[in-house]
């Protein structure tokens, strides 16, 4: 009975979906082309960025990205504020069983390559898929590996907040530089360069490096705070 109901509802859903998708017609123009063309052509011709998503996220919608980074910053700060009180009575992290030597040396060897991959992803954010958020998350997974492997591995909160603050200041000062030079926040102040070059796209690459550092520092702080919580 249950299966029959599921089958019938799935059939109804499928019929409606087929009805909708046959009406679209792939390869033909259906939407207002002005905005789309502005993005697709503008990112290649004027900004010289080959990754269109990056050009939208960082340049056309750069202010939104600043808001997103701020949301992440506030989330990590609130988590730290909630969990920080409990940390006074914790001497050492309680780990049930320590890792074996195999896992320890493996993690130690793997950690630099994870960080390198993350740095590659956010440095090439304007050329290939990926970007600041993704690269920062990859770096944070490297720190997560070290934190769950080594019992005494500690990340300096001071240093993390320095990195985070400097990255945020870099982002905002680039935006203000655009405001003072070209009269709009986050406008491009550097030369665009050639398409598909590493130093292309003006401020976009630099902003993504800043976002990468900021996200990596914030996520590492969140992981560190959660792992050191005593329940």
């Amino acid at each position: 009975m249950k299966k029959a109901i599921i089958l019938i509802s799935l059939t109804i859903l499928g019929v409606y979906l087929i009805d909708i998708f046959t009406g679209i017609g792939f390869g033909t123009q259906h939407f207002a082309s002005g905005v789309k063309d502005a993005y697709l052509i503008g990112s290649k011709e004027t900004l010289r960025v080959s990754n269109v998503v990056t050009s939208i996220v960082v340049n056309f919608r750069g202010f939104d990205t600043l808001g997103e980074v701020t949301v992440l910053f506030l989330a990590s700060m609130a988590l730290g504020g909630i969990l920080y009180k409990k940390r006074h009575d914790v001497g050492e992290r309680s780990v049930l069983f320590p890792s074996t030597r195999i896992v320890m040396s493996g993690a130690k060897l793997l950690f630099p390559s994870i960080v390198l991959l993350g740095a590659y992803v956010f440095i090439h954010g304007h050329l290939s898929p990926g970007g600041g958020f993704q690269g920062g998350t990859i770096i944070a997974t490297g720190f997560l590996l070290m934190l769950i492997t080594y019992r005494n591995y500690s990340v300096s909160h001071n240093r993390l907040s320095w990195v985070e603050s400097l990255a945020g200041v870099l982002f905002i000062s680039l935006g203000l530089a655009g405001y003072f030079v070209h009269d709009s926040f986050l406008a491009n102040v550097f030369p665009e360069g050639k398409l598909n070059d590493l130093f292309s796209g003006g401020v976009i690459g630099i902003i993504y490096v800043a976002v990468g550092f900021k996200v990596a520092a914030e996520l590492t702080g969140i992981i560190y705070t959660i792992l050191h919580e005593k329940d």
Partner: peptide
């Protein structure tokens, strides 16, 4: 060759 044995070792342990 490097990561697969280590991760399976950790899981089994």
């Amino acid at each position: 060759a490097y990561s697969n044995p280590i991760s399976s070792h950790a899981l089994a342990r």
